[in-house]
Design a protein around this nucleic acid. Structure first.
Lengths: 130, 130
DNA sequence: TTATGTGCAAAACATTTGCAGGAGT
DNA sequence: ACTCCTGCAAATGTTTTGCACATAA
């Protein structure tokens, strides 16, 4: 969370602590609810501002997993995600990284590739039977 | 575009025609602007309703490429996408598909996997020099 | 002390929806 | 005719922003 002139505020500490506690990849609003139990007067704007700043500084990851809301992840080591097509839950997929994919994409497009992320879709164990 | 009881309306034809013309993966609002040149009285709601229906029936693809808006693609054969981190443009990445990724993910998660999509990030030729 | 951060509320934006009238089959 | 579809406008849901006050450094 440490960027050059970012102050260590209570709000920032609590947001990061609460995000680190869970592996559910919560949305901004879910984080708001979690944090509000400890800091009842915090504003939703503060949540958004700080999640954005922490994502920019690399402390957390902002996920584009589809659906209508952005999700956040305190684990920044490379891994992928899967979203259940039925219930919308998002979980980690730890499989071997494929660094050669970036080289292939660079060759195919001429872009300077900085990375990739894979979103799987499917049905979780709770939903697959229904 | 043909689902069981979907009527062939002028609006649907024009939306699909305009989307097929371009490879820029336009947003709903961009499609609205394109279609409005031919059908000035069309409503934005009609655009959204029909893009959603066509995506469900498999005629087009709805892309989750990051950023704040959904994008749409008339090309439904499997391919991936890259988004320029600087200008936000989205283009196709045609590289060899990796079907074994789905099996790996199924093994890692226990989910029933239906597919995956890879989003690359990087800088396009116009932006890489800046 | 002073620049940065916060709470609050309003604004901005993307998307969805209700409804009365219109059009495809 | 009988549904399904459209235009319009209002509603919804998410994220951003302006501003006066608070607070970390």
């Amino acid at each position: 969370m440490t960027s050059s002139n970012m102050r260590l505020t209570t709000q920032r500490q609590v947001i990061l602590e609460e995000l680190t506690k869970v592996s559910s990849h919560p949305t901004a609003n879910e984080i708001y609810d979690m944090v509000r139990k400890r800091l009842p007067r915090i504003g939703l704007g503060t949540i958004y501002r700080n999640l954005e700043l922490m994502a920019e500084s690399g402390t957390i990851r902002k996920l584009e997993t589809g659906g209508n809301q952005k999700r956040f992840d305190a684990i920044t080591t490379p891994h992928h995600h899967i979203r259940c097509a039925a219930c919308g839950c998002v979980r980690d997929v730890h499989i071997i990284q494929s660094p050669h994919l970036d080289a292939l994409a660079a060759e195919a497009t001429g872009y300077r590739i900085t990375g990739h992320s894979i979103q799987f879709s499917g049905y979780c164990q709770d939903c697959v039977g229904k």
